[in-house]
């Protein structure tokens, strides 16, 4: 008699075991992001639809667009917004002009054995607190400060730079320069030097080679550097508070002011949301424009 084949379900499908590894490794960061990133944004988002009772001065939780209306239509805030954008963009351009040659040199020109040391030197300022480094600039830029002592005789350098837009830009460039250098350095280091040799070989001068080959091939680093630099500068309030003039404030200061002094949380929250949206849209457009898939053909 032929043996009847009885599939053993138990053997085919082993008892399901819960695999804890992905749950823990993915769960903890997810929880962290929800707690410290999603929740605050949702909270601020909710605040931005609150309003202030004009009689009692207390916040009411009705749904209101009043804060947004003021944030988007007030000429004063439009002006401050544009000023913030101008200062952030100017700082980014100045930083890029300094960061690119340095990052490129460390990544593509310096001997590989020296690269680690040079990057360490770039990062050393990070060992000192942002605020202390910004205070140091006060000492340098103030009347009869270090800068004036040294180059005071140069026409136009006689006065104090402190509490001016120039001081704010200097402060930003100094504080955030290293995080712009890093991605530029990385992309310069990863670029195959044969591309440069090939361009020379085909008759391109060093300058033409830079324009047609080096610059496009290091553009991912430039883009990452711009993004990493621009975002914190755009929302910054400490640097303009310490180094800038009272008539030249930035959005970050306005937002901090709404929360800390004016106690108009809905308006501060609405300004925050507008800033966040602007940065988000700008980044999406920027990354689409500089999509590596687009550059290298997927």
């Amino acid at each position: 008699m032929a043996m009847e084949y009885v599939p053993n379900a138990e053997a085919i499908r082993p008892r399901r075991q819960i695999d804890w590894v992905p749950i823990i490794t993915l769960g903890i960061p997810t929880l962290f992001v929800i707690l410290f990133f999603v929740m605050p944004i949702v909270l601020i988002g909710r605040y931005s639809f609150n309003s202030i009772d004009p009689v009692t001065g207390l916040m009411t939780t009705d749904w209101s667009f009043a804060a947004y209306e003021r944030a988007l239509t007030s000429p004063i805030y439009q002006k401050i917004f544009l000023r913030t954008l101008t200062i952030a963009l100017t700082s980014t351009i100045v930083a890029l002009l300094l960061a690119y040659p340095l990052g490129y040199f460390i990544g593509a020109v310096a001997e590989p054995q020296q690269q680690g040391t040079l990057i360490l030197l770039v990062l050393i300022p990070f060992w000192t607190s942002y605020v202390i480094r910004t205070y140091a600039w006060i000492g340098i830029l103030q009347t009869n400060g270090f800068l004036q002592e040294v180059v005071g005789w140069v026409p136009g350098m006689g006065g104090s730079l402190l509490y001016s837009r120039a001081a704010v830009i200097i402060g930003f460039v100094h504080v955030y320069l290293p995080i712009m250098i890093l991605p530029i350095y990385a992309s310069a280091r990863n670029m195959d030097k044969r591309y440069i040799e090939a361009a020379h070989d085909l008759g391109a001068s060093p300058f033409r080679t830079f324009l047609r080959v080096t610059l496009p091939l290091t553009s991912p680093g430039i883009i990452a550097g711009i993004v990493l630099f621009f975002i914190p500068v755009f929302g910054s309030f400490v640097t303009p508070q310490l180094l800038g003039g009272t008539g030249d404030t930035m959005m970050g200061q306005q937002i901090q002011n709404q929360f800390g002094e004016a106690f108009n949380w809905p308006f501060g929250a609405a300004l925050s949301m507008v800033m966040t949206a602007v940065v988000l849209v700008a980044m999406v457009l920027f990354f689409r424009f500089a999509d590596p898939e687009e550059i290298y053909g997927g």
Binding site: R194, Y195, A198, L217, I295
Partner: peptide, 10 residues
């Protein structure tokens, strides 16, 4: 003509 070709990827 380079061993790695060195075609400009962009």
């Amino acid at each position: 003509v380079f061993q790695s070709y060195a075609l400009f990827p962009h």
